[in-house]
Write a protein that binds this DNA or RNA. Structure first.
Lengths: 198, 198
DNA sequence: GCTTTGAGTAGACACTGTCAACTTATGAGC
DNA sequence: GCTCATAAGTTGACAGTGTCTACTCAAAGC
């Protein structure tokens, strides 16, 4: 096959798109550079002209997924009441995990490429955390920075933990009453509210 | 090489041991049947006489790790006070995650073999959850089953979420105050206590 | 017009899981 | 004690993976 007249940028973009598609369809385990190339009809080495290694492709995919995630969180409606906004944040967080389970798992349950080698990826992750941190700040306006961080971690841990447990498949087999899984998130948010009350 | 006079059971056990060692050393990603065979000095097909597929080896490893985990939780000292015992359970849970991060990740952040195909694995997982569930029961003696399950999920989610976030490596780069990570667990347990208070 | 460089192809290597065929030791039935 | 089935090893192959190297070829710079 002769080289194709791809303007360079195109193939790079196309690789990322295909990688995201594969992850959304089948999960990150099925992601391989060769499969990406195959889907795009190029040789198995073509993607290497745009990504030094498969980790770099993965890092770029993760970066974009963090961005998607942030945008999803920011897109939720707010009403200005700090407590309500924190709760709607939790719901949105959880909604993303349910709507894009495989992408969510990519962010939080997958060994990511070495963070030090991929600062752009981490910058996007940091931004997502800042969103939560800011909402906590509104709820506890008098608290010290450290205290706010601790509470942000607490809230994050609970919401993330629940989203993460829901994907474990262990949960389905554990003998819970029917409906418990559906109520789990609102219940947890309720508990969080109680825990943070003055 | 002639076949060795291994009594069959030995090689099976040895495979599981090596697999656990590999996971503890380098993580589950580095686990491969061939590597196990190599370390044991047997041919790359020998393990297949004891495990139909690599998933079956993994399932057995996961099963044992769940058991280790349960034993770790049960080994903690209790003083009989329901609130204290729940807290010490959280501390122990967290302790396991910190002491055996790679094994913990195996249980909760790794795509496990299909649960339906490996019921023994799931039975062990269920048992671990029962431990937590029982402790919640003591704390809320009057509550309905459903309510207890919801609170058990809440507690589990928080503790698991924190343990899981701590491994994300995202946390190191997120700009937290020094010491926050050390305080995170006691703080979360404190919040849990407040959330569950009558 | 020559040369450098970017972006593609093709082939090789080592690694993986798994299938198939072969060997050999052990134990049961007679 | 002989035979034969089976369990538990062996080797060899195949397709899949990431990645190294060597090649082609077109466009851009001077």
């Amino acid at each position: 096959m002769p080289p194709r007249p791809h303007p360079a940028r195109d193939l790079r973009e196309a690789c990322v798109d295909q990688a995201l598609a594969i992850i959304g369809d089948v999960g990150v385990e099925a992601l391989s550079i060769r499969e990406v190339a195959r889907r795009l009809g190029v040789s198995h080495q073509a993607p290497y002209k745009h990504f030094p290694s498969s980790d770099h492709l993965l890092a770029e995919v993760v970066r974009r997924t963090y961005r998607q995630f942030s945008e999803y969180l920011e897109a939720r409606p707010r009403n200005g009441d700090p407590g309500d906004d924190l709760k709607s944040g939790g719901v949105a967080y959880f909604g993303f995990a349910r709507e894009f389970p495989l992408h969510y798992r990519l962010l939080f349950s997958t060994p990511l490429p070495d963070p030090a080698s991929h600062p752009e990826m981490m910058a996007e992750a940091r931004h997502a955390f800042q969103l939560l941190y800011a909402d906590i700040g509104w709820v506890k306006p008098g608290a010290s920075d450290t205290e706010r961080q601790l509470d942000a971690l607490f809230v994050w841990a609970t919401v993330h933990g629940l989203a993460s447990l829901m994907q474990t498949a262990a949960l389905d087999q554990i003998g819970l009453d029917p409906g418990v899984l559906d109520q789990a998130m609102p219940h947890a948010l309720h508990r969080i509210g109680k825990a943070l009350a003055p």
